[in-house]
Write a protein that binds this DNA or RNA. Structure first.
Length: 187
DNA sequence: CTTTCGATGATCT
DNA sequence: GATCATCGAAAGG
């Protein structure tokens, strides 16, 4: 038995975003393997942390290995995993995962959608996993979170991030090659 | 397949 | 007043 390498929350958000593909993320037992992520950093104009700490992004400047939850378009709750050193302001947005655990609870929370769309997008992930502002700042190595590194190095594809107007050209969106559960196809 | 638009509230200019 | 790390429905090709 060989324990899989631990995820490095001290490193860059780009490295973590790539390493998270294939890792299993559960919230209160609901979730599955991550298939899509995006990296954000303090030196990144598209990042919430770019302008420094404030009331919303405080947990992004907190210790690595914790959650940053923000409200998107006044409607959705989206989940990030904080990395680098405390005070830096870097994180990885969880954009999509393959729904494998707690499907019944996901379907209840998401309403009448096909299973393919249960977790295909950051807002959908938040809703399916029951993410709320109460999760903001919580450590990822304890309940209700469970995060298991990918057993094998995943086959990862890269592309530009989605839904941003700044730094659009940066290839900081990562996906599991061939996955049908990503929010959008990769170029 | 594509584009458009309303929802809904915090943040930015 | 405009923008925003979005979603889903509607309308158009």
């Amino acid at each position: 038995m060989v324990a899989p390498a631990a995820l490095d929350f001290q490193g860059s958000s780009v490295d973590l975003a790539r390493a998270l593909i294939g890792a299993v993320l559960l919230v209160d037992g609901v979730g599955g393997p991550i298939v899509e992520t995006e990296a954000y950093d303090a030196e990144d104009p598209a990042s919430h942390s770019h302008r420094g700490p404030d009331a919303r992004n405080a947990s992004m400047f907190g210790p690595p290995g914790h959650a940053y939850v923000y409200r998107s378009y006044g409607i959705h709750w989206c989940l990030n995993l904080v990395c680098r050193e405390a005070g830096h302001g870097a994180g990885v947005l969880i954009r999509a995962l393959e729904p494998t655990e707690g499907l019944d609870r996901m379907r209840t929370r998401r309403g009448p959608v096909v299973d393919l769309l249960l977790c295909a997008g950051p807002g959908r992930v938040g809703q399916a996993l029951g993410i709320t502002p109460a999760h903001d700042g919580l450590p990822l190595d304890r309940a209700p979170f469970e995060l298991r590194p990918a057993a094998l190095r995943a086959d990862v594809v890269v592309g530009p991030r989605i839904g941003i107007s700044k730094a659009q050209e940066m290839p900081w969106r990562f996906g599991l090659r061939g996955s049908r559960f990503v929010s959008r196809r990769f170029p």
